[in-house]
Computed example of a mutant assay.
Amino acid sequence: MVRKLSTSSFYIQLYQIVDDRSSDQIISWSKSNNNSFIVWDLKKLRSDILSKYSSVLGRNLTEFIAKLRSHGFKTFVKGPGELEFSHDDFARSPLMKKMMVEALSERTEKFDAQIKAMKCRLKAKKATLKVENLFQNLRI
Rank of each mutant, 00 (worst) to 15 (best):
V2D: 13
R3F: 04
S6D: 15
S6R: 03
T7G: 14
S8Y: 01
S9L: 13
F10W: 06
F10D: 08
Y11N: 08
Y11V: 04
I12E: 07
I12L: 10
I12C: 03
I12A: 06
Q13P: 05
V18L: 03
D20R: 07
S22Y: 05
D24S: 15
D24A: 13
D24F: 07
D24K: 05
Q25A: 14
Q25T: 08
I26Q: 10
S28T: 14
S28N: 12
S28Q: 13
S30K: 04
K31M: 11
S32R: 06
N33E: 13
N34L: 07
N34G: 05
N35Q: 08
N35E: 13
S36V: 00
F37L: 02
I38E: 09
V39G: 04
V39N: 03
W40G: 05
W40C: 05
W40E: 06
D41T: 00
D41S: 13
K44W: 06
R46P: 00
I49L: 14
L50H: 04
L50W: 06
S51G: 02
S54R: 03
L57M: 04
G58H: 06
T62P: 01
F64S: 08
I65G: 01
I65M: 06
K67C: 07
R69K: 15
S70N: 14
G72S: 09
F76H: 15
V77N: 09
V77E: 15
K78Q: 12
K78S: 12
G79V: 04
G79K: 07
P80S: 12
P80F: 11
E82D: 00
L83C: 03
L83N: 05
L83H: 05
E84I: 00
F85I: 04
S86W: 01
S86F: 08
S86D: 11
D88K: 12
D89I: 00
D89T: 01
D89L: 07
S93V: 03
L95H: 11
L95F: 09
L95I: 13
L95G: 02
M96W: 05
K97W: 01
K98P: 03
M100N: 03
V101G: 00
E102S: 11
E102A: 04
E102C: 10
E102Q: 14
A103E: 09
L104M: 15
L104I: 05
S105V: 04
S105H: 15
E106W: 11
E106N: 09
E106P: 01
R107V: 00
R107Y: 01
T108C: 12
E109W: 09
E109I: 15
K110H: 13
F111R: 15
Q114C: 00
Q114A: 12
I115G: 05
I115E: 13
A117G: 08
M118A: 13
C120H: 07
R121A: 11
R121I: 09
R121E: 14
L122M: 11
L122S: 07
K125P: 01
L129D: 14
K130G: 01
N133D: 13
N133K: 12
F135Q: 08
F135Y: 11
Q136S: 08
Q136L: 12
L138V: 11
I140R: 14
I140T: 07
